[in-house]
Design a protein around this nucleic acid. Structure first.
Lengths: 149, 149
DNA sequence: TGAGTTTAGTGCGATATCGTACTATATAGT
DNA sequence: ACTATATAGTACGATATCGCACTAAACTCA
């Protein structure tokens, strides 16, 4: 592969990494003290897709090592935002449930992000973001597939 | 803003975060022991844009806290991949220079990534990635601008 | 030019990340 | 059913991240 092409792929992943850094900082500025992005991401995931998921489900969903997920969940539990219960069908596994407080924190955070999203929307209409999504989704899916081969 | 739009922006940043996670893992699998993605990113930046940059230059380029950059640079220095020199014009500042070994490690890593890029290129022709880049670049630039206002 | 302000970098501490190794349970193949 | 293998989760340790507080140098502007 020629150097210019390699450079293009590098640029792509580099931009992605910087946006990740900036958007994470933006989110964390709105989170209550002691919570960081991965905590919120879990709350949001469970709210949108339903709770009762297993830790491994979520490690896979975010593509983080399961050992990192254990740590994130223990933080959320310590803050009383989730509850861990044994899995009814699998003795090795657990289920993660949102508490009332967990739902509230998620909602309040989204509200707090309002002004930030307003600013972004003022510059990037939702259609433009929608147009960009399919490429990101397919790259993500492909990297995911690459990983377990 | 309606919920659906908020969801779209969230999805966008969520995809970005997952791609960041996966691409970082891909890179780190090819790095020599003891080096992680931020180390490589610095080596690559200095190679492409020229060394002699200050730590703060690079913290800004990657949008990481300067205290994180200090840590990353100390790791690179410990591995003998960069050299820190006092800044000739500014007594508060420093300059970061690549060592021969630093250039080699960067080059070898890029070579080692060859097969990964091949696979990616087989699914996503470089034109497709190029088409996606402008949106990412402008989102990055805008978030950057938002941050210091 | 001196006092106040800004900027570059670091020390430190709390917490996060993640690889390795482990335990317990489940599943598969015979 | 019995053994071998695979899977879910965690303990632990090395290192990374990043906020806060600090020092030293540079800049500002009256």
């Amino acid at each position: 592969m020629d150097k210019k092409s390699v450079g293009t792929y590098f640029s792509f992943f580099n931009e992605v990494a910087i946006i990740e850094q900036l958007s994470r900082a933006m989110l964390e500025a709105r989170l209550p003290n002691g919570l960081i992005a991965p905590h919120f991401t879990v709350l949001n995931h469970l709210t949108r897709l339903g709770d009762g998921k297993t830790p491994l489900d979520m490690a896979r969903a975010f593509q983080v090592p399961k050992t990192s997920m254990t740590h994130t969940l223990s933080g959320l539990e310590r803050h009383g935002l989730i509850e861990m219960r044994p899995h009814p069908k699998d003795g090795r596994s657990k289920q993660v449930w949102l508490t009332e407080e967990g739902r509230k924190v998620r909602e309040r955070t989204i509200d707090a992000l309002g002004p930030d999203f307003q600013k972004i929307a003022a510059r990037f209409p939702v259609e433009q973001i929608e147009n960009g999504l399919p490429l990101l989704e397919s790259v993500r899916a492909y990297l995911d597939k690459m990983r377990d081969t």
